[in-house]
Design a protein around this nucleic acid. Structure first.
Lengths: 230, 230
DNA sequence: TGTCTAGTCTTGTATATACAAGCAATATGA
DNA sequence: TCATATTGCTTGTATATACAAGACTAGACA
């Protein structure tokens, strides 16, 4: 052995990095690690545990522990609530309510919300501003079953997202991000003539789809960013 | 107690869901849980451990365990390797190498890669095609220290991302996503005149920044999508 | 009143032990 | 030869124990 390792975790990571253990290879057993580092099996196991929950290793009862197949290099991007994001930057957040109404689902809305046609849903359009400059145009449909008081909310005080996450704790979400030039109405509300980032976000609570939001960000003024560890 | 819980984990999650324990509230101590469920402290601790690593609870030595502040409603978006994505859709993936060279860092490149100026770095430009239609223009800088053979790779056989993830296992990444109209050169390579999604991706290995990539996707032909549970 | 100290509760860490359960190679028996 | 049982290794789970270390409280003391 060329070096003494401070932790079992580092030792395992190094072996993988150096290439001694490659994807799908078997790693030293818990007992071997315990002996090698002169610790009890439970201690060695804990190190392996951590690496498993981080996705680096995979266990198989009776067989052993293996280096995980590095998942198809995918990484993650965080999508924040716009209000939190603006405030987080230390800027001034305000919001303009363009529309707040109760409408009947047409075919497409019914499909998207997984409801039947001609049902009541809430519809809101808001513009979010950072230091009085528009940064997001939000067009949202809400299933009243999950948020019956949605229409009576004061969105100047609390964003739809914040409200929804309280009345119907979100369990899932999916997103589609695209680049496009939106309609003139939207562009004028955003006070922009640039291509926009459009984020389509569907959120689930435990009882089904809670809401669908179309979020438009002016491309010259907004970036979606995120830093994450694997 | 109204119900018997199968697991300590379920019990804690239910208490949080019901609202007995709210964000920042103190949760029963490990000893209390152990007593309540007639198990040893280590067993109770393991349940709490799991919920901690999932981000539901937060521990503080000497103080106790607390319900985590549900992070400012943020959710996650997966960013895949383009080749995997195309193949995953069952389509035909090909790749065109526009440039593959060794250059000296100028000021901005040096900054981005956290190197000094006038150092050797690798530079590659590739266009990725799905069923012979361009879907990504990739402009990449690579730190030779992390991938000395980068320049000799055959990227028709293996994408840069795939290669890099083998020679320098990635530990971190950050992304910036924006919408813009790229340069004419890029547009012509992408055979498009539409606004594009531009993804700037920096990847780290354990020894530092390994690579910076600028990925351009034609907005009318590409969406970034993801579905994730919280 | 203010300060230090001791005690107690919390999480953090490590150990030794025991047995269950999954898997595979080997030995056994018909 | 082939099916079955045994053995040994692996991970999975649970327990009892011990002590370290952080955070707070109450009491002693000046």
């Amino acid at each position: 052995m060329r070096a003494r390792y401070l932790t079992i975790k580092d030792y395992i990571l190094d072996q993988i990095e150096i290439g001694v253990w490659r994807a799908s290879d078997k790693v030293s057993s818990e007992n071997e690690l315990a002996q090698k580092f002169s610790v009890s099996r439970m201690t060695a196991r804990k190190a392996v545990d951590t690496l498993c929950s981080e996705g680096t290793l995979v266990r198989s009862q009776g067989l052993g522990t293996f280096v995980a197949d590095r998942r198809p290099v995918s990484s993650l991007l965080e999508i924040h609530n716009i209000a939190d994001e603006v405030v987080g930057r230390g800027h001034d957040y305000t919001c303009r309510v363009i529309k707040l109404e109760e409408i009947l689902t047409d075919k497409s809305a019914a499909n998207l919300l997984e409801m039947s046609e001609k049902q009541n849903v809430y519809h809101s359009i808001l513009v979010h501003l950072e230091d009085n400059i528009p940064v997001q145009y939000e067009d949202r449909l809400v299933n009243p079953k999950h948020a019956p008081d949605y229409i009576h909310q004061d969105f100047l005080a609390q964003t739809p997202n914040a409200y929804l996450s309280i009345v119907a704790p979100l369990t899932e979400a999916d997103h589609i991000v695209e680049a496009l030039v939106p309609s003139k109405t939207i562009l004028s509300e955003l006070d922009s003539d640039q291509p926009c980032l459009k984020i389509t976000r569907r959120t689930w609570s435990r009882r089904g789809i809670a809401s669908i939001a179309y979020l438009y960000h002016p491309g010259d003024r907004y970036r979606l960013g995120g830093h994450l560890q694997f």
